[in-house]
């Protein structure tokens, strides 16, 4: 389908793009560069974390960009990390863009690898390329892309370098035209055994709506905040079903 003649993703039904990344990666600059002044901020439901959303048009399609809080990790060490994690696994954005600081790739890789374990539609955006050049840092993005199994785009958001290419890559992925094979870390045999044992139970509980391997890993780590979120989701869904008039007597509620 040609999106220009038949705008499937119009203002009313835009693609949803999430920006994840460490603090100080120029993520907000990228967000500003993409969305200009079409932004609004509010709160994430029930959290004192600022929720920033903006939008842009590209090639006839509308995109909503969610600027996730800058975090070093998604292992729920803070409310910020919980918000970012929940957005990626429960709201399942059409594309999750991980913004990396080109001058601190190794540290930033920590978050990128975590996101790759949580989602399939991921783009790595190596930002601050202008700073990296000044510091004599060279990054082989082709090799990186091959190793990690997702597209890698270099940008310098504040000079608007690479933005067009980033938008193009996002578009391709949003339309499902990009095949990815996200890098999944292999742990020790002992841990891998546990993961696959648990993975099955996760799939039988949540189907394929959640990344089973990742949830299994987090549960093995005893991630209490994720457990709480899972409970909440199920409760929320129960209420939704209830409100929409499904006969609940068919599904006796347990005590």
């Amino acid at each position: 389908m040609n999106p220009r003649t038949n705008p499937k993703h119009s203002q009313k039904n835009p693609f949803r793009i999430a920006l994840a990344g460490n603090p100080n990666t120029g993520k907000s600059t990228l967000f500003n560069a993409l969305t200009g002044l079409r932004q609004h901020t509010g709160n994430w439901p029930g959290k004192t974390v600022i929720h920033a959303e903006g939008s842009y048009q590209y090639d006839g399609d509308a995109y909503t960009v969610i600027d996730l809080p800058g975090t070093y990790s998604l292992y729920s060490n803070s409310a910020d990390e919980e918000v970012a994690r929940d957005c990626i696994i429960f709201e399942k954005p059409d594309v999750t863009v991980v913004v990396l600081d080109a001058t601190a790739m190794e540290r930033n890789m920590n978050l990128a690898l975590q996101v790759l374990e949580m989602a399939d539609r991921v783009v790595l955006c190596i930002n601050l390329m202008d700073e990296a050049k000044k510091k004599g840092i060279y990054i082989n993005e082709k090799s990186l892309s091959k190793k990690l199994g997702v597209p890698v785009v270099k940008t310098s958001a504040r000079n608007r370098d690479g933005l067009d290419r980033l938008q193009k890559v996002i578009q391709e992925m949003a339309y499902g035209r990009t095949k990815t094979n996200p890098y999944r870390i292999r742990y020790s045999d002992e841990l891998e055994e546990k993961i696959s044992a648990l993975e099955e139970s996760v799939t039988s509980t949540f189907g394929d709506r959640l990344p089973a391997r990742w949830v299994a890993l987090r549960l093995l780590d005893g991630d209490q905040s994720l457990i709480d979120s899972l409970h909440q989701r199920i409760e929320l869904h129960r209420k939704e079903v209830h409100n929409h008039g499904v006969d609940e007597s068919l599904y006796p509620v347990e005590a």
Partner: peptide
């Protein structure tokens, strides 16, 4: 993993 990946792709 991160440091292996970077060793092969990032040059200072």
């Amino acid at each position: 993993t991160g440091s292996t990946v970077c060793q092969d792709t990032v040059r200072y």
